[in-house]
Design a protein around this nucleic acid. Structure first.
Length: 833
DNA sequence: AGTCAGCGCGCG
DNA sequence: AAAGCGCGCGCTGACT
């Protein structure tokens, strides 16, 4: 400890927090360590010891900060204790000491490592929100926070950002001009477009530009909702490099904007010039493109999406613009509270908006080079991902048609059923006087009420518990459906609780969301993220911006998880005069696995048109094919995929029970698994090969060249390593299959357009593509869909010769869940029935 | 009023 | 020792 600081601040008999009870002698109230006159204070969670000092020194060295001599090390919690985590009360109790320390040391800069340090120095909580932002402490010091090294240890993807934060702080504290890069900030190279004369300059600049990046700030709600508006637009134009880059900031709907009354007209004027710029770049381009298309730029199409490039080049990294710019370009952190931009001063909005396009353009030039250097990734970007983004703009903008009548009817059925179940459950609920005092309301979800009621009041046995709590106490009794099913054997409420869970979810997660999100054209809009998964699948749900609206809770619709029940899927349909067409790749992952593994038995089965899932279902149920139900085949599918991707005998015991009510012993389970691999003898060799490749290269690849990096493959922890090995087996299959589905959507849509059809895709569900097709176009459209999906130009575009038959099954109907599967003859010779 | 983790479950 | 993979969402209960 620093003697002078110790004398000034330390309270050796402090008992304000729980840590102090555990600490003795020197470990109570440990004040800062370091030289007098230190200009920099680093605040850690606990008083720093040799081990964490060494760990931090490693990170600091990586951030080009090897010399940390003139630093005072202080802590948020001043007592050294073991195995104890401070809560908010402890942190509050200790805060005054840090304040005193900072007032005494009077450093110029303070770096907070982790959330506790952030709180101690600034009183703010939320490290992910505040990291990288600058604060001023009462002592006059400039304070910046970053994440804790522990977070990097748990999740290596935070590493680069952590180092970038440290480097930024080092530069800040040492007064180094933060970057040699002349494009570190736009500086003078920016203009606010607030007069007609400047607007004309912008148009001239667009006319002369070869590349432009664009970004909008919005009112927050979906662009299809009433009241939606674009607050401001930013464009960064350039000829062919950053040397000629210039930021244009255009106020639009903001109250202080000169264009507020005619903002859409301004967009329309700019549109014609923007279209003509050859390369149009945005970060998460679908979002900005949809908004701009809706409000005056109907023909805008992005040519390069930096978020897609970022994800293709490294699927594991954080993909937001800010972290990328900070990590890859050394950009200074920037940001404002985007929750209500209309009450944020216009200059703040514009500067923020401008930095977004400035750094987007810088990322563009960087990623373009990286894609050129990795031609296979580059081809995926050009021939698959950008066309996909362009098509998804159409898909998201259009939305999916909802049959209001069916929605109302089915929602009513669900509501009524839920009410009935609830009424029956209520018969078993005792009067309120008998409840424990801490329980306020009846709640049949996994609540304290339900747990007390089932396991104490009704005295039903606890079959399983949730995760053990941090303090070592046992987890809460499990309320999972499988447990309720077991309880049903003992008490009728078990069955009712299962039904309650089912209908509650149907009402709240599905029907209520649908009604809330329906637009005036009876359509629901969802968002697809082609960068949302590590394997290359699309994820689907709420737009990130929509999660932040100040209007309260916005429900989300994930069109990839609509229950396979006509009551729910039947809500989605085609408008009158059109049909809902679902095109499914049949057993695509299994076919791809057969192809990748060169599994001769599987290849032969597919060559002769057989069904592997059915074979498993027959073995599981002991029934002949004719008597196996659809449901049983579906369960068999789960078993096949389980074994294919590395499921052990242990889990199979559970699968067999929960799927088939089949009691399987350990020996039987092992035998079953063995016989699966005996049946397909090349699979184990393929598994071994994938593991070997992952260990050798740290990554695996799909046939089209999509990469999955597996840093955990080097982990010293066997569980973690084994998980990476299973991912090495799964990823190429899952990734290839989803790329095929995405590519087929792009190609089918392209052919529809070429033929002047109004038929269009609605979205993908991993291995299926859904379409909305006018009835008089079905005759032309159906064969196009089937042919395109089964014969994608994989060899021409990606050099892949796929020698396993690919089959697309086509279903047609008025509504999603009610579609009927067509025979091949019907697909190729459609007669409207 | 908002945020978070844990759980359970919807889909492929 | 323990072992399918990939997602998003709503709810609860804890916190500020």
């Amino acid at each position: 400890m620093n003697k002078r600081l110790q004398l000034a601040v330390r309270n050796a008999v402090c008992t304000n927090c729980r840590m102090s009870n555990q600490a003795e002698g020197d470990d109570v109230c440990v004040t800062g360590q370091g030289p007098n006159g230190a200009r920099v204070v680093i605040v850690t969670k606990f008083p720093i010891g040799p081990r964490s000092r060494k760990e931090l020194s490693g990170f600091l060295a990586d951030a080009d900060w090897p010399d940390v001599d003139n630093v005072m090390w202080c802590s948020a919690i001043k007592c050294r204790s073991w195995g104890m985590d401070p809560n908010k009360t402890d942190m509050k109790a200790c805060r005054p000491y840090l304040d005193e320390e900072l007032n005494f040391v009077k450093p110029e800069y303070v770096l907070c490592i982790g959330g506790e340090a952030l709180f101690a120095a600034t009183g703010r909580a939320g490290i992910m929100k505040y990291r990288g932002k600058l604060f001023t402490h009462a002592s006059g010091a400039t304070v910046m926070a970053t994440i804790a090294p522990g977070m990097v240890a748990r999740n290596p993807r935070f590493r680069d950002g952590f180092i970038a934060d440290l480097r930024y702080f080092r530069n800040l504290a040492s007064g180094i001009v933060t970057d040699q890069d002349p494009y570190h900030t736009p500086g003078e190279r920016q203009t606010t477009v607030a007069t007609k004369a400047v607007l004309r300059s912008l148009l001239a600049a667009l006319d002369a530009s070869g590349v432009v990046s664009y970004d909008v700030e919005t009112t927050g709600a979906g662009e299809y909702e009433s009241g939606a508006a674009i607050v401001s637009l930013s464009l960064t134009t350039a000829a062919t490099s950053m040397a000629t880059a210039h930021v244009w900031k255009i106020p639009l709907f903001h109250p202080q904007s000169p264009w507020r009354r005619q903002w859409q007209r301004i967009l329309a004027i700019i549109a014609r010039y923007l279209y003509k710029v050859k390369r149009r770049i945005a970060h998460n381009a679908k979002f900005d493109t949809r908004w701009l298309r809706t409000f005056g730029m109907p023909e805008l199409t992005p040519t390069f999406d930096t978020i897609i490039a970022a994800a293709l080049l490294d699927e594991n990294r954080v993909k937001g613009l800010k972290p990328l710019a900070q990590q890859l370009l050394g950009a200074d952190p920037w940001g404002i509270d985007t929750k209500n931009l209309l009450i944020t001063p216009i200059d703040e909005v514009l500067d923020y908006n401008g930095l977004d396009t400035w750094h987007t353009l810088r990322l563009y030039f960087m990623f373009r080079e990286q894609l050129k250097a990795q031609p296979r990734i580059g081809r995926l970007f050009i021939y698959l991902m950008m066309p996909l983004v362009q098509e998804l703009v159409n898909v998201e903008q259009r939305g999916v048609y909802v049959d209001r009548e069916v929605l109302a009817t089915n929602h009513n059925i669900a509501r009524q059923t839920l009410a009935d179940v609830r009424e029956q459950l209520m018969e078993w609920v005792p009067p309120r006087e008998e409840w424990p005092p801490n329980i306020k309301d009846v709640n049949f979800n996994a609540s304290n009420f339900a747990r007390w009621w089932l396991f104490e009041h009704l005295g039903l046995p606890v079959m399983a518990r949730g995760k053990t709590k941090d303090d070592g106490s046992p987890g809460a009794p499990s309320m999972a459906e499988a447990i309720m099913l077991e309880l049903a054997e003992l008490h009728e409420v078990g069955k009712l609780m299962g039904e309650h869970a089912l209908w509650f979810k149907r009402c709240s997660a599905f029907f209520e969301s649908y009604e809330a999100l329906l637009d005036e054209n009876s359509r629901i809009h969802t968002t697809f993220k082609p960068w949302g998964t590590v394997t290359g699948r699309l994820s689907s749900g709420k737009e990130d911006e929509e999660k932040l609206t100040a209007r309260g809770h916005v429900k989300g619709v994930n069109l990839q998880q609509v229950p396979r029940d006509p009551l729910l899927r039947g809500v989605f349909g085609a408008p009158p005069g059109s049909s809902f067409v679902e095109a499914d790749y049949s057993q695509i992952e299994l076919r791809i696995a057969a192809f990748l593994a060169r599994e001769q038995t599987m290849l032969h089965l597919y060559a002769s048109g057989q069904d592997i899932h059915m074979a498993m279902a027959m073995r599981m149920t002991g029934k002949p094919a004719s008597r196996v139900t659809k449901e049983e085949r579906k369960r068999a599918k789960a078993v096949n995929f389980g074994f294919l991707y590395g499921m052990g005998w242990h889990k199979f015991v559970m699968t067999a029970w929960s799927n088939y009510q089949l009691r399987v012993t350990e020996e039987e389970s092992r035998a079953f698994r063995t016989s699966f691999f005996d049946q397909f003898p090349m699979l184990p060799a393929w598994h071994a090969k994938q593991r070997r490749l992952a260990h050798k290269f740290g990554r695996v690849m799909t046939p089209m060249g999509r990469v999955r990096h597996l840093p955990d493959i080097e982990s010293p922890i066997p569980d973690v390593r084994a998980e990476a090995e299973r991912q090495a087996i799964n990823s190429p299959v899952q990734g290839f299959a989803s790329d095929m589905a995405a590519l087929s959507m792009v190609f089918v849509a392209r052919k529809f357009r070429k033929l002047g059809l109004t038929a269009h895709p609605i979205g993908t569900v991993h291995d299926a593509v859904n379409f909305e097709i006018p009835n008089d176009e079905l005759r032309i459209a159906l064969p196009i869909i089937k042919d395109t999906m089964e014969t994608l130009p994989l060899e021409r575009l990606f050099g892949v010769v796929l020698d396993v038959p690919i089959v697309a099954d086509i279903k047609v109907g008025t509504h999603w869940g009610l579609a009927r599967e067509l025979s091949i003859d019907e697909v190729y010779d459609w007669q409207a029935a």
